[in-house]
Design a protein around this nucleic acid. Sequence first.
DNA 1: GGAGCGATGTCCT
DNA 2: GGACATCGCTCCG
Length: 205
Amino acid sequence: MPPILSRDFYLHPPDVVAGQLLGKLLVRRYKTGQGSSTKAIRLAGRIVEVEAYFGLDDPAAHTFVGKTARNAVLFGPPGFAYVYFIYGMHFCLNISCEPEGQAGSLLLRALEPVEGLETMAQLRGLPSDAAPRLLTSGPGRLCQALDIRRETHNGIDVTSARSGLHVEDDGFVSGQIEVTPRVGISKAAERPLRFSLAGNRFVSR
DNA sequence: GGAGCGATGTCCT
DNA sequence: GGACATCGCTCCG
């Protein structure tokens, strides 16, 4: 089994960790089937697009207003999942970074699906032969494809194998990294904090 | 393949 | 009450 990224990996500023996270595998353990025929499978995708959010200094970040009930996870230690509900129907997944007390985070925006594509399609409400691009290209899509919800995943430790959600380094070597402005925000929209694998088809639009 | 737009719940002011 | 780190559909080229 490839090594799970440790807490130290996430200890650094978000613009640093974002680039290092590209090319790693996001892995979700998932139970499929029913009754006695249930079995555990892996839903996995390679991280191809990440946005960096700073804490109190970043007007676009959820943490800009200070610590609240919703964003409390981000003020905790690095390597924990922050899952929030947006636009009345979607979830987005972040991972906390920086030392406890500093609220940097990484927004996972797109994966290249690697394991469990049929189950991902099912979870997305698509036919099993759906185009892979439709599965995990976009922050809301990847949460739906991996069945990541606030109730089940907000606040879990992604550095522990027992969480059922973690990030692995399988030795993949990233090519060129592209850095562009972040997507879908109105404040600090010009800052180049969106990191993606150059030329990868699974990067969101 | 791109612009426009509606759906929809939660959070914070 | 308004804004929102989105998505999928329609309509148009």
